[in-house]
């Protein structure tokens, strides 16, 4: 069992769902990335997604684009990313998931990149531009290293394809909530999102948990997608927006209190 799978079992026993929260490596700085992760953990996040910025994040909206650009300008790279992950791993046993784009792994070679991040403490990988059809080599290395490959599905993914994607995924399946990029600011999800959650849940059954992300930015929305059947809410841009608004010294506590407000929605009566 992986840390991610263990976490979902543990939460289930407690009648809770998961809060998956995001921090970008090197944004606004390496040191503050660690403060942000501490805040997320203190606020009750169950799984941490760590972004390794890519120069051309085509599935991302303006918030993550801007953070990627600035982190790269400040010299974020693979070695510094590892350093951050190792520091986090010393402090906590929380599941850590890497989110980046396929070229970052391909460039180094899947067989080189994956064992190194596994050793540093990463448990799973999300690549928004890694389609099922192109994933054979990547999956081989993932399996060899006992890591979780988290694939994405979308509201327009066919039932047959969801089944196929589920068969190669582990940890959880990531449902993109909307037609659009990350960081949408809608206050409520439309019916098609809720329908997509119900449909995906029906297909996944008890085999794999379903996480829902893209544009999740408040507790009310979080509740609506959990009620529709999601096993986890995934929140990224909303945390980065908060980071942009608050003075450095308050980052950890403010992030923690926002995480807490979201975590509350996942604790079922």
């Amino acid at each position: 069992m992986s840390r991610i799978q263990d976490k979902f079992s543990e939460l289930k026993a407690k009648n809770q769902k998961a809060l998956i929260a995001y921090a970008m490596a090197g944004y606004p700085s390496d040191k503050e990335t660690i403060s942000i992760v501490r805040g997320l953990v203190n606020g009750g996040a169950d799984i941490i997604e760590i972004g390794l910025p890519f120069s051309d994040p085509l599935a991302d909206g303006p918030v993550i684009q801007n953070a990627s650009f600035k982190a790269l300008q400040k010299g974020m790279n693979f070695e510094r990313f590892l350093n951050i992950v190792q520091k986090i791993r010393k402090e906590t046993d929380i599941p850590l998931v890497l989110m980046t784009y396929a070229n970052i792994l391909y460039n180094k070679g899947y067989d080189k990149f994956i064992p190194i991040i596994k050793k540093a403490g990463i448990d799973g990988i999300i690549l928004p531009d890694m389609s099922m059809e192109e994933s054979a080599q990547y999956l081989k290395v993932i399996h060899k290293n006992n890591m979780d490959a988290i694939f994405l599905i979308s509201p327009n993914t066919s039932e047959d394809r969801i089944r196929k994607i589920a068969s190669i995924s582990s940890g959880f399946v990531y449902l993109v909530s909307v037609y659009g990029t990350t960081g949408g600011t809608q206050q409520q999800f439309q019916q098609y999102t809720l329908d997509a959650i119900k449909n995906a849940k029906k297909i996944l059954g008890k085999k794999l948990p379903l996480g829902v992300g893209f544009g999740v930015n408040n507790a009310e929305q979080a509740r609506s997608i959990l009620q529709a059947g999601a096993d986890a809410i995934i929140v990224a841009s909303a945390f980065l927006r908060l980071v942009d608004k608050i003075p450095q010294i308050k980052i950890q506590s403010k992030i923690a209190s926002f995480a807490k407000s979201l975590k509350k929605t996942t604790i079922l009566e």
Binding site: P128, S154, N156
Partner: peptide, 9 residues
Amino acid sequence: RFIPETLVP
């Protein structure tokens, strides 16, 4: 085809 899932259909 290295694309976000939304574009597959």
